[in-house]
């Protein structure tokens, strides 16, 4: 493989990482509050508002039911309006964010709903406001589960970035399609696949490690 191609692989890897990182960040900023809302606005919960809950739930479901490649193409006008172009890594971040935000919302919702309702009752008995319950009880207690959920979302995003490659995004997916497939360069294809696998492994391992750091539920030998 020529030095040129290696440079290309390196650049594509960085582009993928960039798209994944920014989309995760934006997706969490949008999906996080949505997830908290979904988890706490059911009837009888902290911010009980069943109608709003149902509406947001429907929107989230709708967004999640569109196959990513269709979504990416369908929102090209929107992407162009936001970024000024529909091509390149920055443009790819728009559909990636829109795809991952509802996914993150559902993951965070389910993590929060796993928190023992007894803890909410205990916090209420202390005179906590709903906002305090979210900040001091629900989010910290759900954190290991949220981290694992975000890990899952990041792994999915790595897959999505490969798809944006087909519609003018950049990154490893683009490289694999243009060189590996269209120019029939199996070594490039193989390199793309291996880098992707390694990337997913690292993300998964790191996610599990961070989640375990947060998790105080398993008794450990803490010396003495």
């Amino acid at each position: 493989m020529s030095a040129n191609l290696i440079q290309l692989l390196w650049d594509s890897t960085l582009q993928t990482l960039y798209m994944v990182a920014i989309a995760t960040l934006l997706g969490t900023l949008i999906g996080g509050p949505l997830g908290i809302f979904l988890a706490t606005s059911r009837r009888g919960e902290l911010y009980s508002s069943p109608i709003a809950n149902t509406v947001v739930g429907l929107v989230v479901n709708a967004a999640r039911s569109i196959p990513f490649i269709i979504l990416a193409v369908a929102i090209i006008p929107f992407t162009r309006w936001i970024v000024g172009t529909a091509i390149g890594t920055s443009a790819a971040i728009v559909p990636l964010t829109i795809a991952v935000a509802p996914f993150i919302a559902r993951l965070i919702e389910s993590s929060i709903r796993e928190v023992d309702s007894g803890l909410i009752e205990a916090a209420r008995s202390m005179g906590a406001t709903p906002a305090q319950i979210v900040r001091k009880v629900l989010l910290p207690e759900a954190m290991p589960s949220i981290v694992l959920g975000l890990t899952l979302a990041i792994v999915s995003l790595i897959g999505f970035t490969a798809m944006v490659g087909t519609i003018g995004g950049k990154g490893l997916g683009d490289l694999g399609i243009r060189y590996g497939y269209q120019r029939f360069m199996p070594d490039v294809m193989l390199a793309v696949v291996i880098i992707t696998i390694v990337m997913v492994q690292i993300v998964q391992t790191l996610g599990e490690w961070i989640a375990a750091r947060f998790d105080k539920r398993a008794p450990r030998n803490r010396g003495r």
Binding site: G118, E141, K216
Partner: peptide, 12 residues
């Protein structure tokens, strides 16, 4: 208030 199942925060 104290509870049958303690209701302590596991992460604290």
């Amino acid at each position: 208030m104290i509870f049958q199942h303690f209701n302590l925060l596991a992460m604290r």
